[in-house]
Write a protein that binds this DNA or RNA. Sequence first.
DNA 1: GAATCGTTTTCACAATATGAAAAATACTAC
DNA 2: GTAGTATTTTTCATATTGTGAAAACGATTC
Lengths: 251, 251
Amino acid sequence: MKNTTTAIQVLDRAVGLLDSLSHYPEPVPLKFLTADTGLHASTAFRILAALTAHGFVERTDSGNYMLGTRLLQLGHRVKAGTDVRREARAVMEWLRDQVEESVNLTLREGDEVVYVERVTPARSIRVEQVIGSRAPLHVTAVGKLMLGEMDDESLENYASRTNLERYTRNTLTDLDGLKTEARSSVAQGYALDNEEAELGVGCIGVLIRDGSGKVVAGLSISAPIERRKEDWIPLVLEAGRRISARLGFTG
Amino acid sequence: MKNTTTAIQVLDRAVGLLDSLSHYPEPVPLKFLTADTGLHASTAFRILAALTAHGFVERTDSGNYMLGTRLLQLGHRVKAGTDVRREARAVMEWLRDQVEESVNLTLREGDEVVYVERVTPARSIRVEQVIGSRAPLHVTAVGKLMLGEMDDESLENYASRTNLERYTRNTLTDLDGLKTEARSSVAQGYALDNEEAELGVGCIGVLIRDGSGKVVAGLSISAPIERRKEDWIPLVLEAGRRISARLGFTG
DNA sequence: GAATCGTTTTCACAATATGAAAAATACTAC
DNA sequence: GTAGTATTTTTCATATTGTGAAAACGATTC
C-alpha cells in the first residue's frame, strides 16, 4: 500500500486508514487496520474515533469499522465533471440499453483517466469499472484519443514521463506505434481498445466536448472482447454527439 | 457552521475545510475558505496542500480549490446499505418511470434517515433530495414507518430525545398524534408525508426488508404535493416488495 | 477461574503542527 | 507602464498537539 506522505502526519495516517477500510468488503476490526497501516493500536484508535465523530467512518454494533455515509455525501458534491456527469447519465443509459454492455464516463486527470460514472447492463457477465479507479492514458480507448489531441511534443513528454508501461501483451509500448494509433483514432473520431488494458476486455471510446469545443470527458463501452461488435461504433459516436450537444457543443 | 470537535485538531480542521468546500457550487479561492473556517491562511494552505496530495481536494488552473475525485471513489466504496442500493437501483428507475417523480432510498442512522440513492424524472419541476442529507424520523414517511416498528418505550424515548422538532405547520409534534400515525402507517404498510418536512412536498414511503425480515432501508416517492396521487400507493408497495424480494425477503 | 487476545484510556514527552512574518505572486488602478 | 494592494506561498522558532508505552478494561477461550 503506497502511502502518499505530506507535511501533515495525522492526515496521511487518517487517509491511510480510510484507504485500508475501502479495501474490505465487510466491516473490519481495529486489528486489521493496524496491521495494514502499521500504526500503533492506540494511535489508530484515536484517529478512527475522530473520523467516526465526523461521519467518515462508522462502527457496527460489534465495534468493527467501515466507511461512513459522510463520504457518500461529499462524493456526491464533488464538482469535477458535474455538468458532464449530469448530462451524460440519460444518454449513457440509452447506450447501455442499445448494446447491453457497460458504459463508462471518464475524466482526464494528469496522465490518467478517472472513471467517474458508469451504467451496467443486467447480464451476469459484464465488465465493471470501479468508480474512482484510474488507468494511464495509453491503455484506454478514451485515453488514446486524448493523447491524439496533443501536439507531438506533449505526446513525447507523456511517453518519457510514464515509460508507456505495459499492461497486457497488446499494450502499445512504443512511442511510434502509439502516436500512429492516437492520430488515426482522432482522425476517425473514435478509438478501440483491444485488450490493451486488460486481457479479455475490449472498448470503444469517443471524446465529449463542451460549448467551447474543449474535451471535457470520454465515453466508452466496455465489453468482453468476444462480444464486442464494430457495429456499435455509430451508436457510441451518436451517444457522444448527444452528450456534447447537451453541453453546448455545436461542432 | 457547526464544527464537531474531536481529540485531533488537524482532522477537525481538515474536515471543516472539506465541509466548507462542499458548500460552494464553484471552485473557490483560499480566502473564502479561511473566512468560513476562521483558520489562519498559512494553516489552511498547508492542510489543503496535504488534502490535495491525497486527492481529497483539487485545484483549478487558477489555483482555486474544489473537492477531489478521491471522494468520489471513497463514496462509492461506502458499505452502508451496499446491497440494498445495488438491488434497489433498477426498481427505483422502474418506479420513477411509472410516476415521473423523484424516488429516494433512505437508510436509518440513529434518529435520522440518510438519503443514499435517488433517481429523478426528466421534468423541470421535481423534488430533489441531496444524497447524504438527513432528516429526523418523525418528519418523513419512511421515518414514521420506522418509528411505528418500535415498541412504545423506544418511541417515547425518541420523542423525548428529539423533542419532535417542528419543521412545518404539518409536522407531528405531539407524541400521541405521532404514535397513532406511526402505528396505523405500519398497519397499512405504507406512510404518507403531507408536507410534514417541507411545505409543498408530499411523499409516499414503504419499508424494505432483507432475508431475515429486518428493516434495512426505506423507499419513497417525493413529489410536489399537488401532483401526488394516492393511486401511486400500489406502485410504491409493489416496488418495495420487489426490492425486498431481491434481498431474500419472503414476506 | 485463569489466561489470552483485542480494545480503550491515561499520561509524560518530544515530535509535530502552528501562525507570525517575510517573500513571492497576482490584481487594480492610475 | 508603474505604484499600490490583495492574496498566496514559504520559512522558521515555538509550544501545542499528537504520540505510543503502559496499564486498565472487556471479551473469549481453555
